[in-house]
Simulated scan of single mutants.
Amino acid sequence: MGRVSTAYLLTCAAIGVAGGVLFWGAGWIATAVFAVAPFVSVAGAGLWLLPSTIALRLLERPFAGILTGVLAGLVAFPFLAAAVWWGFMAELAFLVVLYRFWRTWQYWAGAVVVGIVYPVAAAQSFDLWAMTPVAVVGFFALTLASCLAGVGLGVLVADRLRAAGVARLARRRR
Rank of each mutant, 00 (worst) to 15 (best):
L148D: 07
L92K: 03
W129E: 09
G152R: 02
T132K: 14
L142W: 07
A93C: 09
L142K: 10
A123E: 13
F94A: 00
A164L: 14
W105Q: 11
A141P: 14
R168T: 11
S146Y: 01
V155E: 08
V96M: 06
V113T: 10
F126Q: 06
P119Q: 10
W105K: 11
F126V: 11
F94W: 06
L161Q: 02
M131V: 05
F101L: 10
F94R: 00
W108C: 00
P119G: 08
A167P: 00
V117I: 14
Q106R: 12
A149E: 03
L95W: 09
L144E: 00
L156Y: 13
D159M: 07
A109P: 07
L128H: 02
G138M: 06
W105R: 12
D159W: 01
R168M: 09
V114R: 01
C147N: 14
A149F: 04
C147A: 13
G115I: 07
G150Q: 08
F140P: 00
L153G: 02
G115N: 05
W129D: 08
S125G: 15
R100V: 09
T143C: 11
W129S: 05
L153H: 02
S146I: 02
F126W: 11
G138N: 06
Q124M: 10
V120W: 12
E91D: 13
V96S: 04
A111V: 02
V97N: 15
G150N: 07
G165R: 10
V137W: 13
G150T: 04
W102L: 01
D127P: 04
A163E: 14
A135Q: 14
V120G: 04
L98S: 12
V137K: 09
R100W: 09
A121F: 13
G115R: 05
L161N: 03
G165Y: 09
A93M: 13
F126L: 07
